[in-house]
Simulated scan of single mutants.
Amino acid sequence: MSPHELDNPAFHALSGAHRPLAIRRGEAARYRPTVAPFGALPPEPTAADWEDLAAVAGDDELILFGLPVEVADGWEELGRFDVVQMTAPDGFGRAHPDVVRLTAEDASAMVDLVAEAQPGPFSSETHLTGAYYGVKEDGRLVAMAGERLTTPGWTEISAVCTRDTHRGRGLATRLMEAVAHGVHEAGRRPFLHTGAGNTTALRLYEHLGFTRRETANVVQRVRVAR
C-alpha cells in the first residue's frame, strides 16, 4: 500500500501548495522561520536527504510532523510527543455571520491571542498558510481558527483558540465549521491534530464527528547535533 499523504503532511504541503513559503534543498524543506517551525523529509529519507535538511535548518530547531522517523547521524532528537490525527465527517462545516475572515492587518492580534491561549506554534507570518477566521468583540479578537498544512486533498484546521474570558460559548465549534466550509469550497477535506493527552479537545472533536486515523503520528523536535 502506498503511503497516505496525511502520514507526512508537512512534506506534501511544502512540496505543493506551500512551496512559496518553503526553503528547500533537494527533497528536504522547511518553512521560513517567520511562518512555522516545521521541517519535512520525503518518505524513507536517505542520508543525503538529512544532509539537505541540515543545510536548510542551520542552527534552528525544527519540528517533524507525521509518522516517526529514526534521526540520522549528525542530528539529535530533543523530544517527541504523540499526536492524534483526525478527519472531519462528511458535511461538517458552514458559514456563520459572526465569523470574519482575518487579514494581514490582524496578524499582531492573532499572535497576541495565541500567546494567551497557547494552541501551538504561531509566528508573525503563520497566517500566510491559509484562510484564518475570527470572532471580534468591541474590535478585539477573542477567538480564531484557520488553515495550516495543506496537502493535495486535505487541509488542516489549526490554531483553534479562545480567550479565557470567552470560553463556553461555542466559539471554537463555530470557527471550526467556518474553516471547514472554506476547505470544502476549495475542493479539499478537513483534518486536524491534537495532543494524544488532550482529553478535552479529543472529546470536543469526537462530539463533532471527527474520527481518528489509525496511524502512530508524532511530533519530533530535532536539530543538527552541536
Rank of each mutant, 00 (worst) to 15 (best):
A36H: 02
G26T: 06
L128E: 01
M1C: 13
A47I: 11
E44Q: 12
D106W: 10
K136T: 04
F81Y: 07
H127Q: 12
R189D: 02
G79F: 06
A216G: 05
E214I: 03
A225W: 12
M1E: 12
L64H: 08
H18D: 04
G209T: 07
D73V: 14
D164T: 13
R101L: 10
V160T: 07
E105Q: 13
G66T: 00
G74R: 09
L171D: 02
A72M: 13
D60P: 02
C161K: 05
L192N: 01
V222E: 05
A201H: 02
T162G: 05
V135Y: 02
C161H: 02
F191I: 04
H127S: 11
A201K: 01
L41G: 04
A10H: 01
G120T: 04
N8F: 00
G146M: 10
M86P: 03
A131S: 14
L78A: 08
G16E: 00
R94S: 11
E185R: 12
A115I: 07
F38C: 06
G146Y: 05
W154H: 01
A143S: 15
Y31R: 05
G195C: 06
V222Q: 05
K136A: 04
T87F: 06
L208Q: 01
P89D: 14
R174F: 04
P68E: 11
T34A: 10
A225T: 12
D82L: 06
N8Y: 00
T162P: 04
A48P: 08
M176V: 02
T155G: 06
